[in-house]
């Protein structure tokens, strides 16, 4: 009896380990893989852009200070942008200019590996060259990954990765954005 109870305790302990801690966004996961195989994924093939939470705050500050100088129309647009940015924590963009197939294969491999985390959104309506994947935590979406393949004949790929807190309000504002 003691042995059985001890075995049960040992078995349940790993499942009770709290989630959280340092987590990478999707492009972070990709870049970890790319950087570990530098001879396969060359620096000249891609461009990686990061806008951190600190910069987002700076942008919001800038928008706040500039809004007084703008016309009503522009002020509305700035207000809309501000409303959207308040939900955004970071932005990462990975633009591949060569050997896009290789990076697309890696993308699909990572999406498959993390299929319990990233769910595909609006598959059919987006078209063949676009995919949107989201990551949820509770009721909110916390990460949006948009994958855009180039039209046939062009060897490019762009992946955009937004993190933040994206509820219904955010998507409503986003849909109104022009």
């Amino acid at each position: 009896m003691k042995t059985l109870l001890f075995s049960l305790l040992i078995m349940l302990l790993p499942t009770a380990v709290a989630y959280g801690g340092s987590e990478q966004d999707f492009i972070g996961k990709m870049m970890s893989h790319v950087n570990s195989k530098a001879d396969t994924y060359l620096d000249s093939e891609y461009e990686h852009i990061t806008v951190s939470p600190t910069m987002i705050k700076s942008v919001l500050k800038m928008i706040g200070s500039n809004s007084k100088l703008l016309s009503d129309v522009d002020a509305d647009k700035q207000e809309q942008l501000k409303g959207l940015l308040e939900n955004v924590k970071s932005l990462r963009i990975l633009t591949v200019s060569k050997e896009a197939d290789k990076y697309m294969t890696l993308t699909q491999k990572l999406l498959k590996k993390h299929k319990r985390v990233y769910k595909e959104y609006a598959v059919e309506q987006l078209g063949e060259d676009k995919q949107i994947w989201t990551r949820q935590s509770g009721k909110n979406v916390i990460e949006i990954v948009m994958i855009e393949e180039a039209p046939k004949g062009k060897d490019t790929l762009q992946i955009v990765d937004l993190t933040g807190s994206f509820g219904d309000n955010f998507f409503n504002m986003l849909m109104k954005m022009r």
Binding site: G20, E23, G28, I49, T50, T163
Partner: peptide
């Protein structure tokens, strides 16, 4: 989920 924003380097 806590992302590792400390490792983000602005472009």
């Amino acid at each position: 989920v806590e992302y590792n924003y400390a490792n983000y380097h602005d472009t």
